[in-house]
């Protein structure tokens, strides 16, 4: 069941995705500071190895659910950064026609069942999507991303219990970034190793260094293959760290001195660059990848800027798929 090794080009592809996420977020933070983005942002900077590693082997028909920190997952699933920026800008061409914003971006056709403003909110949805994938019997899977904080929610418990009981094709990916909003992990749960929670559901639980994208990819592929083969769900605890605050603007003063620096030394992009260099990829090639990403994001921002603002009347549209007589929306 162990995966085939990735080619050098495939690894460069992972690098490209990670750079795309990193730069998408840094640009978004900057654009928000400049006043172009009206709502909240919860940047994924520092955690790129998890989204990219987990999504590397997903196929068409597989679906994922995400969190408030969802841009990375959405980009890793192949979303268009232009439509994402358009949504952040609250414009008509945004993924949600300017009715969702960062916390609610969604593209079901892409297999992205949504970021989520509710901690733990995506876990039951992924479980249900997994149930439907099992019913369809085509070997497709659902992946649920969530943080360490979400593992204290009832939705986590109810969903993992159900998924294990019914052997659903779901991969639960806990991105343990060691903070539930502003509260460090040791103050919000009495255990250090979240993967152990899998034991209570008779589920496979595994810990992985989330900043090593290739390790994440190995572990995730094994879980996905098990799910495809009908062998049931897995709980993956990917240990990682967010370089920025809980949301853009949070100064993260709750961090002990030196902690961020330790993690910066293990930056997922830096680790993969190092690996690629040892495999003979030159600096020029990496620079070429980075330049390509900048160009793409430049275009994406331009697309968002050019997209029209919604018209006030659009606020009354799309409440229902089907409206009926007597259904005053005003």
């Amino acid at each position: 069941m162990i995966s085939q090794d990735l080619s050098r080009e495939q690894k460069i592809g992972l690098y490209r995705s990670m750079v795309l996420i990193r730069r998408f977020e840094e640009r978004a933070a900057h654009l928000r500071q400049q006043g172009f983005i009206p709502g909240f942002l919860h940047p994924y900077v520092g955690q790129e190895g998890v989204a990219v590693g987990v999504c590397a082997d997903l196929e068409e028909g597989d679906v994922i659910t995400s969190t408030h920190r969802g841009h990375g997952h959405m980009l890793a699933r192949g979303a268009d950064p232009g439509r994402m920026y358009a949504e952040l800008y609250a414009r008509q061409d945004g993924y949600n026609r300017a009715k969702g914003g960062s916390l609610h971006m969604i593209d079901v056709e892409l297999g992205f069942l949504g970021a989520n403003g509710i901690v733990g909110g995506g876990i039951p949805l992924a479980t249900g999507a997994g149930l439907q994938k099992k019913r369809e019997g085509r070997g497709r899977v659902a992946v649920s991303f969530f943080g360490d904080g979400a593992t204290n929610e009832g939705s986590f418990h109810e969903s993992l219990n159900l998924a294990s009981l019914w052997s659903l094709p779901v991969v639960y990916v806990c991105e343990n970034n060691f903070y539930g909003e502003f509260t460090p992990q040791h103050k919000h749960q009495p255990i250090a190793e979240i993967a152990r929670r899998a034991d209570s559901y008779a589920m496979e639980g595994v810990v992985v260094e989330g900043n090593h994208v290739l390790e994440v990819r190995e572990v995730a592929l094994r879980a996905v293959e098990r799910a495809r083969a009908g062998e049931g769900p897995t709980l993956i605890e990917a240990r990682t760290y967010r370089h920025r605050g809980h949301y853009e603007g949070d100064m993260a003063r709750y961090r002990p001195p030196g902690e961020l620096e330790e993690w910066l030394a293990r930056d997922p992009l830096g680790l993969l660059e190092e690996r690629l260099r040892t495999e003979g990829v030159g600096e020029e090639r990496l620079e070429e990848v980075r330049a390509g990403v900048e160009k793409r994001l430049e275009e994406a921002v331009r697309f968002a800027e050019a997209s029209p603002h919604p018209l006030p009347g659009e606020a009354l549209e799309d409440v229902y798929m089907e409206t009926h007589d007597g259904m005053a929306l005003r």
Partner: peptide, 23 residues
């Protein structure tokens, strides 16, 4: 037949409905 898990059950139905079921 499900465990006694209202959020889990309703959430599973909503999730299944997102990908084509009519639960």
């Amino acid at each position: 037949d499900t465990p006694i898990s209202e959020e889990g059950i309703v959430g599973a139905a909503v999730g299944a409905a997102l990908v084509g079921a009519r639960p």
